[in-house]
């Protein structure tokens, strides 16, 4: 394999990994934008999405008849499940704390995250499960020596479609306008007659369903899923969100793709050992030199 070919191959791998991070990062960034809360449990919602997809496709035995529609159905189911999970988390864990100090909400978020992880271990068992092949792997595409896996194409296309839908919701609908209003100023939005609690619920559901979709896509590329799988991608997606500027939707996508590429190139060209530490190193660097992220807006703190 030539150097150029290898490079392009890494580029493609990095992009598909980054696309998954992006879907998770979007949920983080939306919730942060609207509540100034890092939803630590978001990575666990992603994990639940993978499991929901797995049980759904097993139940209907979709692994035996792989098709595009099987994938769509699985995605739909897992997004719906995660939307409900997101709603429940917000309603029972975060809403009662709306007026509490931020550190309390943060601790609760960590608690919810760990609760989902370990009750997941009780429910699903701690050994890795196999995610069925719900779409035909096929031969993929090849351009000369460059090979693109079908899965990777599917992952990238679906992520793009979902991001486009999200973009439309945020900028073209009433709900989106309400969400932007609430994230701009919670109290004023409420005075203007926007049902803020409802809007926050919707935001959680949207973000969580994206995480659910990411779970299914992750399962397609890396078919071994386990209850603790969510924490690391979750944290990395958070780093991606910070990299792009927390609260900025387009920034989250750019940050996630950057992180995916950086990881892939580190593993490909330098060393695989520090793959999982890279994200945190990036986080520390970005917070040191540009705390607002690549596209964030600096807000002056009012006393």
């Amino acid at each position: 394999m030539g150097i150029g070919v290898e490079f392009v191959q890494h580029l493609i791998n990095g992009f598909s990994l980054g696309a998954i991070y992006a879907l998770i990062a979007l949920g983080y960034t939306m919730v942060f934008g609207i509540l100034q809360l890092i939803n630590f449990a978001h990575g666990e919602v992603f994990m639940l999405g993978a499991f929901a997809g797995m049980y759904f496709s097993r139940f209907f035995n979709l692994g035996a008849h792989p098709s595009f529609w099987a994938l769509i159905a699985t995605l739909f189911f897992s997004m719906a499940t995660c939307g409900v999970v997101g709603f429940i988390i917000e309603k029972f864990a975060y809403r009662p704390l709306r007026k509490s100090p931020r550190i309390n909400v943060l601790i609760t978020a960590v608690g919810v995250s760990l609760f989902l992880q370990f009750s997941g271990q009780l429910l699903f068992g701690s050994d890795p499960k196999f995610f069925p092949q719900i779409i035909e792997a096929g031969h993929g595409f090849s351009f000369g020596e460059i090979r693109v896996n079908t899965m990777q194409v599917v992952v990238m296309v679906i992520s793009l479609v979902l991001m486009a839908i999200l973009q439309t919701i945020i900028f073209k609908t009433r709900l989106g306008r309400a969400m932007r209003a609430v994230s701009f100023n919670h109290d004023n939005a409420s005075l203007m007659g926007i049902p803020t609690d409802k809007v926050i619920s919707y935001t959680f559901m949207l973000g969580s369903s994206l995480a659910g979709a990411a779970g299914v896509l992750f399962g397609l590329i890396y078919p071994k899923i386990e209850p603790l799988m969510g924490s690391l991608p979750g944290l990395k997606a958070f780093v991606a969100a910070v990299l792009g500027g927390v609260g900025n939707v387009a920034g989250a996508v750019v940050g996630a793709i950057t992180l995916g590429l950086a990881e892939e190139f580190l593993v490909g060209y330098v060393t695989p050992t520090f793959k999982d530490a890279l994200a945190f190193a990036i986080l520390i660097l970005i917070l040191l030199f540009k705390p607002t992220g690549l596209f964030g807006i600096r807000r002056t703190e009012k006393v």
């Binding site: 890092i38 931020r102 550190i103 943060l106 530490a277 994200a279 986080l283």
Partner: peptide, 15 residues
Amino acid sequence: KGDYLAIVTLGFGEI
């Protein structure tokens, strides 16, 4: 502030 610090310290443990 709060949340960022939590993640950085968590990341530090991981590093």
